[in-house]
Amino acid sequence: MAKRVLVKFSGEALAGEEGYGIDTQILNYIAGEIKSLIDAGIQVGVVVGGGNIVRGVTAAADGIITRTSGDYMGMLATVINGVAIQEALEHIGVETRLQTAIDMQEIGEAFIVRRARRHLEKGRVVVFAGGTGNPYFTTDTAATLRASEIGADMLIKATKVDGVYDKDPKKYPDAIKLDTISYDKALEDHIKVMDDTAIAQAKDNKLPIVVCNMFEKGNLLKIINGDTSLCSVVK
């Protein structure tokens, strides 16, 4: 059983059927799933993307906005989502701290790894926002970085699918779910659930990446307790 985990949620997942913005029902659901981990004595860090508001690559696609500015816009979007997750968690009684990679003291603490670890030891959820603080890096990379820094036992990539498949299961009914996949194979095949930089960083730090369906209630706790049938593991 893992004692300390980092859970990565996509920004798009917060949008629900609308495709943009924040669906408060999904926000409440995510908060409940995280609370179940805290109640089980697990230390939890969270990274959330910003794709429900703006994605840097998309914003810069037509050349009007530079990639650097687009990525900073995306980082700010993750802060908005981070504030929302913090509020949802504290609404149900889970003490939470928001730490940002970009200094904005009126909104959250500056990221300091020793402080983050101390919060986790005290049973607080720590939400890491603002990506890595640098353009040209995704929130997947930010999640792997923060997970490595806090000494997480695993990184859980909470998605809309229940794992990694040998081909797109939406297009091919005969797609086969891969229970485990090596870092090298994941890099070779450029699996779409995580970007290559994040996977390479996880490999260097021997950090397992668990890919699971966030919309199956109770999945996160079952996986942390060792049920690998509900996910795929990159290791």
Rank of each mutant, 00 (worst) to 15 (best):
F111G: 05
A40V: 11
S69W: 06
K167N: 10
D174K: 13
A84S: 11
K206I: 11
I156Y: 10
N225W: 08
I156V: 14
I80E: 02
S10M: 09
R55D: 05
A15C: 12
E216H: 15
K192D: 10
V57A: 14
E121I: 12
K8E: 04
P135W: 11
I92A: 11
G82P: 01
D162N: 13
T141P: 05
F111L: 15
V7L: 12
E12P: 02
Q201V: 14
T58R: 15
T132G: 03
A147T: 06
E12D: 09
A31N: 10
E90R: 12
C231D: 04
P208W: 09
I38A: 11
D153I: 06
K160I: 14
L178G: 01
G151N: 07
E90A: 11
Y183Q: 01
L98R: 02
F215S: 05
A198E: 01
Q99P: 02
K170G: 11
E87Q: 15
I80N: 02
K8L: 08
D196G: 13
V126E: 00
G50S: 06
I112L: 14
R55C: 06
G41R: 07
L207N: 08
G70V: 06
V210I: 14
I34Q: 04
M104N: 15
G16Y: 00
N205C: 08
N213K: 11
A116I: 08
T66N: 10
A129W: 07
G21Y: 13
A129I: 09
G45C: 10
L98M: 09
G19E: 08
V113F: 04
G16P: 03
L14T: 07
I53H: 05
C212R: 02
A77L: 03
T78E: 02
A129E: 02
L207P: 02
N213L: 09
D168P: 02
L178C: 01
G56F: 05
A13I: 11
A202K: 04
V125W: 03
K222W: 08
L187C: 04
V94H: 00
I209W: 00
N219M: 12
F9E: 07
L187F: 04
L178S: 00
S232V: 09
V113W: 05
G49D: 08
M75R: 04
G226D: 06
G56N: 03
I65E: 00
A200L: 12
R118C: 07
T159S: 13
T68F: 08
T96P: 01
S182D: 04
T66S: 15
T24F: 13
K170Q: 14
C231F: 05
S182N: 04
V48I: 15
E17M: 15
G151L: 04
I223E: 01
R114Y: 05
A2C: 13
I150M: 10
N52H: 05
N81K: 06
G151D: 07
G32Q: 10
T100C: 13
L120E: 01
C231Q: 04
Q99A: 13
K8F: 06
T96F: 03
G50Q: 03
K3P: 03
N219E: 10
D71T: 09
V47K: 01
N219I: 14
G21L: 12
H190W: 10
V57R: 13
P208S: 11
G51K: 02
A202M: 07
D227N: 12
S148V: 08
L155P: 04
Y136D: 09
Y183S: 00
L207T: 09
I53R: 04
E12G: 08
L178P: 00
V126G: 01
